[in-house]
C-alpha cells in the first residue's frame, strides 16, 4: 500500500491537508515523504493513501518531485535554506586617551584662549564668598 511513488495526503500535524509522495521506506511503520509538505519521516498512521502512483527513484531528489507535482498541476514552493547570519558582536567604546601635544602647541593655544577665561574667573570668585557669608549669618 505504502510503496515508493504513492501519492498521499497528510492527516496529522502542521502539514495536515497537504499532498506528498513517498520517497523511501524507512521502517515497517515509517516512510520518508516529500512534496507540499516538508521532506521528513512520517508514520503510516498519519497518511491517507490516494490512487495515483508515480515512477520515481528511491530517495529521489527534489527536482524529480517538482516534476511529479507539475503533472498534478500543483506548483511547489521553492525554499532555499536560510543563510546563517553572524551575530553582531558588541565592541566596548574605548576612552580616548589625552593626546600628547608638543610644548610649543600648548603655548600657542594658551595665548589664544587666555583673555576670555580670566575675566570669567574673576566674576565667579567674587560671587561665591558672598553666599557663604550670608548662610553663616
Amino acid at each position: 500500500m505504502f510503496e515508493i511513488g504513492r501519492l498521499c495526503i497528510k492527516i496529522a500535524g502542521r502539514d495536515a491537508g497537504l499532498k506528498c509522495v513517498i520517497v523511501d521506506t524507512v521502517d515497517k511503520f515509517t516512510v520518508l515523504v516529500d512534496g507540499q509538505t516538508r521532506r521528513r519521516k512520517c508514520n503510516i498512521k498519519h497518511l491517507e493513501p490516494l490512487e495515483q502512483v508515480f515512477k520515481i527513484s528511491k530517495n529521489a531528489p527534489r527536482a524529480e518531485i517538482v516534476r511529479v507535482f507539475k503533472e498534478l498541476k500543483i506548483e511547489l514552493k521553492e525554499t532555499k535554506p536560510k543563510k546563517k547570519s553572524e551575530r553582531p558582536i558588541k565592541v566596548r567604546k574605548k576612552k580616548q586617551k589625552p593626546v600628547k601635544q608638543s610644548a610649543k602647541k600648548i603655548e600657542k593655544e594658551a595665548v589664544k584662549v587666555k583673555p576670555k577665561p580670566q575675566q570669567e574667573e574673576k566674576v565667579s570668585v567674587a560671587k561665591e564668598p558672598v553666599k557663604k557669608e550670608e548662610k553663616s549669618k
Partner: peptide, 26 residues
Amino acid sequence: VSRLYGGFLCGTCARKKLKNQARLSK
C-alpha cells in the same frame, strides 16, 4: 493549534474529516 482546523476541531475529529475528504476525492 497550528494544525488545519486547529482551534475549531480536536485532533481526532480533524483527522477523520481529512480522511473522508481524501476518500471522496477519489
